[in-house]
Design a protein around this nucleic acid. Structure first.
Length: 642
DNA sequence: GTAGGGTTAG
């Protein structure tokens, strides 16, 4: 009723319902030129429209049509608002038919309203047909149709209409630009649009700016996004959310959190979108404690599905599955993303059986899995070595769920076969894949060769990786180590030369640990951390103690090592060992040590972590780029299979 | 009558 009170406040002062038609008399002047001079039917119709009485208005409309009586565009727009509010699609279509009955041609305004109605009802074809039928189109007509195509993710079509609009000499406004910006599919047309915006003097509009920030960051042009953001004198919440979201989605979690602090200092209160992005930043950095703080604020928006999904993911990716499960259980609504997040989260953390149990529960609840759900399921199978189950899900996904296996699904099965030592079958699958294998596919096979020490196949797979991804430093190092191990020194120097010529350097192994909501970073053989001397002293003592318990540092890890060429002593100072020791020094007795790494963990650090977890009776969680290791009581959740 | 921000994999 909100809209009604705005429109007819002046005629609702009388409490008597009988006075309605009398009071509405001035509105009858909103008559269509086709109408007879005065009409009770029309008065009634107008009355029902403004009272949002859809059934009676529809009846009155039918009666009017029989008598050839029509209302004005404002009245029809009220009726359409009512149809939209009730999602009354059929009634909306009847209004459209009524307006055009007896060959009447409405003005642009009413055309626009009808087009907008069809768009909101998701009837794009009808909207387009009406648009085509218009004798004259203004900026609103064009913007409505462009924005409809943008929302339908038909960017090319949206851009085509934008060009047609310009050719037709219609000047775009801020509504048009905020829509069409979202259709940008490349930097070139984004820059052109940005110039156009400046030319027509719309660059200071907040809607246009937030769209610009969003599109620049989606195209990975963060510098430009930040530039647009910094130039703004007045920012609103959405603009802040755009920049925080852009940073969080581009793996710049640190900066996203910094901007979030600035936003709060500027006096803004976070809403659902802000918190979702902040959680995503925490997820990327595995900041469990900061994430927990955010959780407190999330409670205000209890039923927000997207926000709760982001919370779930944060807990999963911080290795805290118990928290994830309790959030999941408390969620009022769950969608396919909630389920997929849990399944993938459990699988990545090494709880494959539980992941598959969740998949069964999901199906039992009637939820239909999607492409990503199946990836999580296959990931669970591959990381638990469940060959038969993996094949079953892979072979039945098309039939049971109508999902065609993609490259990533093939990758999971190649991984599964490779880990299980079935390298021949894995190679066969690569050859039979319905899609072209990419660098990731070959790297998966290479990983399996590393585990099973198949030198010839490893060399072949590494060469395929380098053909498709010539800048992959890890593969160069691995290949060089394989050659070194086979004493193929000429090949070794060729690889080194290639790396030198191409300027390829391997990123040093780094680990991060959160202590008191602060992130501490360690790199291989670190000397920069303020407590490094104490860490090294404790590390040496610890290694000595562990060796007494039977620990033998594994220095022969040529086919295993992903940290690079360092051997012997440097093995001692792998970044995760430094981070573990720092955790032992800094965290209270018994509390979990959680570490995030940029490279995959090596065999020696894996053994080390198992022993430390046992000796110190605490949980150690190490997250690498692919999966998670939960070390407890001398064993790892990955079952030494990674 | 037409506009901007948030979730699962890789």
């Amino acid at each position: 009723m909100k809209a009604v009170s705005g429109k007819i406040k002046h005629i609702r002062t009388s409490p008597s319902s009988l006075s309605w038609s009398y009071s509405l008399a001035p509105l009858a002047s909103r008559t269509n030129p086709r109408n007879p001079p005065s009409s009770t039917l029309l008065d009634e119709f107008i009355n029902f429209c403004y009272r949002r009485d859809l059934p009676r208005a529809m009846k009155a409309m039918a009666a009017m049509e029989r008598h050839g009586i029509y209302a004005d565009a404002i009245t029809y727009s009220e009726l359409i608002k009512c149809c939209l509010a009730r999602n009354a699609v059929e009634q909306g279509k009847l209004v459209h038919k009524h307006v055009f009955s007896n060959g009447y041609q409405p003005k642009t305004f009413l055309f626009n309203i009808l087009i907008a109605m069809f768009v909101k009802f998701n009837l794009l074809e009808q909207a387009q047909a009406l648009f085509d039928q218009m004798p004259e189109r203004n900026v609103v007509s064009w913007t409505t149709i462009i924005s409809a195509y943008v929302n339908a993710k038909l960017s090319d079509r949206a851009l085509e209409f934008f060009v047609l609009m310009l050719r037709g000499g219609v000047l775009p406004n801020m509504y048009t630009f905020s829509s069409v910006l979202r259709a940008c599919n490349g930097l070139v047309n984004l820059r052109q649009l940005h110039c156009g915006i400046i030319k027509v003097g719309l660059e200071s509009d907040v809607f246009v700016r937030s769209a610009l920030i969003d599109v620049y960051s989606k195209l990975d042009e963060l510098k430009d996004a930040i530039c647009v953001f910094n130039e703004m004198e007045t920012k609103d919440l959405v603009v802040w959310n755009s920049i925080i979201g852009g940073l969080a989605q581009n793996s710049d979690g640190d900066e996203a959190l910094n901007q979030f602090k600035r936003m709060k200092r500027a006096g803004f209160t976070a809403d659902q979108a802000t918190l979702t992005s902040v959680l995503r930043a925490c997820t990327g950095l595995a900041l469990l404690e900061v994430g927990r703080q955010v959780h407190v604020h999330v409670l205000k928006f209890d039923v927000d599905l997207i926000l709760n999904n982001a919370l779930l993911d944060m807990y999963c990716k911080s290795g805290s599955l118990e928290d994830a499960k309790s959030v999941f259980e408390r969620m009022v609504y769950r969608d396919v993303i909630s389920w997929s997040t849990m399944i993938a989260g459990l699988a990545q953390n090494g709880f494959s059986r539980e992941a598959l149990k969740f998949f069964d529960l999901m199906k039992a609840s009637g939820m239909k899995p999607n492409y990503i759900t199946i990836l999580g399921v296959l990931f669970a199978c591959s990381h638990a070595g469940l060959v038969d189950d993996g094949w079953y899900y892979f072979r039945s996904m098309k039939k049971l769920y109508g999902i065609d296996p993609g490259r990533e699904h093939y990758g999971c099965i190649i991984d599964l076969l490779g880990r299980a030592g079935k390298l021949d079958e894995a190679v066969k699958l690569v050859q039979e894949m319905e899609c072209e294998p990419d660098a990731v596919t070959w790297r998966t096979l290479l990983g399996a060769c590393r585990v099973h020490r198949n030198v010839d196949l490893a060399i072949y797979a590494a060469k395929q990786v380098l053909k498709l991804d010539p800048g992959d430093a890890g593969t160069y190092v691995l290949l060089s180590n394989i050659y070194a191990n086979s004493e193929r020194w000429e090949d070794v120097s060729e690889i080194r030369r290639a790396m030198r010529d191409k300027g390829i350097k391997k990123a040093p192994g780094s680990s991060w640990i959160e202590v008191n909501k602060q992130i501490h970073a360690f790199i291989l053989g670190d000397t920069a951390h303020p407590k490094i001397n104490e860490i090294n002293r404790r590390l040496n003592q610890l290694i000595h103690k562990l060796m007494g318990m039977g620990y033998v540092p594994d220095t022969n890890f040529v086919l295993q090592d992903l940290e690079g060429e360092q051997r012997d002593d440097s093995l001692r100072y792998h970044s995760e060992k430094l981070a573990i020791v720092f955790g032992l020094i800094s965290l209270s007795t018994g509390s979990a040590i959680r570490i995030r790494k940029n490279l995959r963990i090596c065999g020696d650090c894996h053994t080390f972590a198992k022993l430390v977890a046992k000796m110190d009776c605490r949980l150690i969680v190490i997250r690498d780029p692919i999966r998670y290791h939960h070390f407890q009581n001398g064993v790892c959740s990955c079952g030494d299979f990674w």
